[in-house]
Simulated assay, not measured.
Amino acid sequence: MQRGLIPGVLVLAVAAAAVGVFVTRATPIDSSPLAGRDSDPAKGETVFIASGCASCHAAPDAEGDAKLILAGGQRFPSDFGTFIAPNISPDPEAGIGAWTLGDFASAVKKGVSPDGQHYYPAFPYGSYLHMDDQDVVDLWAYWQTLPRDATPSQPHEVGFPFNIRRSVGVWKLLYLKDDWAVQIADTPELERGQYLVEALAHCGECHTPRDALGGMNRANWLGGAPNPTGRGMIPSLRPADLTWGPTEIVYYLETGFTPDFDSAGGHMVAVIENFAKLPASDREAVAAYLKALP
């Protein structure tokens, strides 16, 4: 009797493994909606700034125009290991210069590499998946204007079992969500604010607490979280906790100065530098969104 069960168990095990392999595969984006679109590098620059690409991928301690050299090398510690930003300059060997627009869109919105591997969600594609297709096209066009750099990317310092890339497919099944984090009133200003906060500027990636597997706890959206560096807390942006008025939020996003005469520190310094370069209407839209949170 037991001998008769063994083949059936093996068949079920093989079938379960096959299903697991299928559902956790890295599937690139359908790039057909991107084909034939006109691109605007100037608009792409705005997307680049709002998305904070240089903030993570410029070389450590880069200043001024050197921040446009996306050589990578910055280190981002976490509970799962230390992730090191790769070279994403247009260099065809060390960077992403040999990629197609479809490759780029798959990486940004799906976290899938050109060779069919999952990227770790330290790359905030969980937020970028909301990015408008035209913004992706314009961003790629701007990317072609950036300087090349031949600095090799460094491997992440991630141990077992988190170094198994296939497991990221399970993470994506659990946590990648196409819907917006919150439902708010439908006005052009609030739509823009939501797009900036939840998609381009990916504010939730730092300001929302995470569970044991690193997924964002949407029930406490923007409710504050431990700093991945282990130093202090990243503050809540919910209206009950962030008591600043809209004008004070706008001023902070432009200057880095708080109403109580303190100033931004840590990674927020780079965020302020980016927001200061955006139109005033964008900072106002972010403030409107934050004050409209439930």
Results as ranks from 00 to 15, higher is better:
43 K>H: 15
64 G>W: 05
48 F>D: 12
47 V>F: 01
72 G>T: 01
74 Q>N: 04
64 G>I: 05
35 A>W: 09
33 P>M: 04
57 H>N: 13
60 P>M: 14
70 L>N: 09
62 A>R: 01
64 G>H: 10
46 T>W: 07
60 P>Q: 11
63 E>D: 10
36 G>F: 06
43 K>L: 15
47 V>E: 13
33 P>S: 01
69 I>E: 06
63 E>S: 12
39 S>E: 05
46 T>P: 07
31 S>Y: 05
58 A>P: 05
51 S>R: 02
32 S>Q: 06
53 C>E: 03
69 I>H: 02
49 I>Y: 11
36 G>N: 07
48 F>E: 13
62 A>D: 06
34 L>K: 00
64 G>S: 08
72 G>P: 01
49 I>R: 00
69 I>G: 11
40 D>Y: 02
46 T>C: 05
54 A>S: 14
56 C>E: 04
59 A>M: 10
37 R>A: 06
71 A>T: 00
65 D>N: 11
41 P>Y: 03
67 K>Y: 08
75 R>S: 12
56 C>W: 08
50 A>D: 11
41 P>A: 02
59 A>K: 15
50 A>Y: 05
56 C>H: 06
45 E>H: 02
73 G>Q: 00
60 P>V: 09
53 C>Y: 00
58 A>I: 04
63 E>L: 14
43 K>S: 15
42 A>R: 14
65 D>C: 06
64 G>K: 01
60 P>E: 14
49 I>P: 01
65 D>S: 09
32 S>H: 02
66 A>P: 05
57 H>R: 07
35 A>F: 15
68 L>R: 06
65 D>L: 03
31 S>K: 04
38 D>Y: 03
53 C>L: 13
41 P>C: 07
68 L>Y: 10
57 H>L: 08
34 L>T: 00
34 L>Q: 03
43 K>G: 12
67 K>E: 14
36 G>H: 08
69 I>W: 06
51 S>D: 08
52 G>W: 04
44 G>K: 00
39 S>L: 10
48 F>W: 15
69 I>R: 12
64 G>N: 13
47 V>I: 08
68 L>M: 12
31 S>C: 11
35 A>M: 11
43 K>M: 15
74 Q>L: 12
74 Q>V: 02
47 V>N: 01
36 G>W: 13
55 S>E: 12
68 L>G: 08
49 I>C: 03
54 A>P: 13
48 F>C: 10
66 A>H: 06
49 I>T: 06
72 G>L: 12
32 S>K: 15
33 P>F: 03
42 A>S: 15
38 D>M: 09
52 G>N: 09
59 A>F: 10
51 S>Y: 07
39 S>K: 02
42 A>K: 15
55 S>K: 07
38 D>G: 13
43 K>T: 14
32 S>L: 04
40 D>L: 13
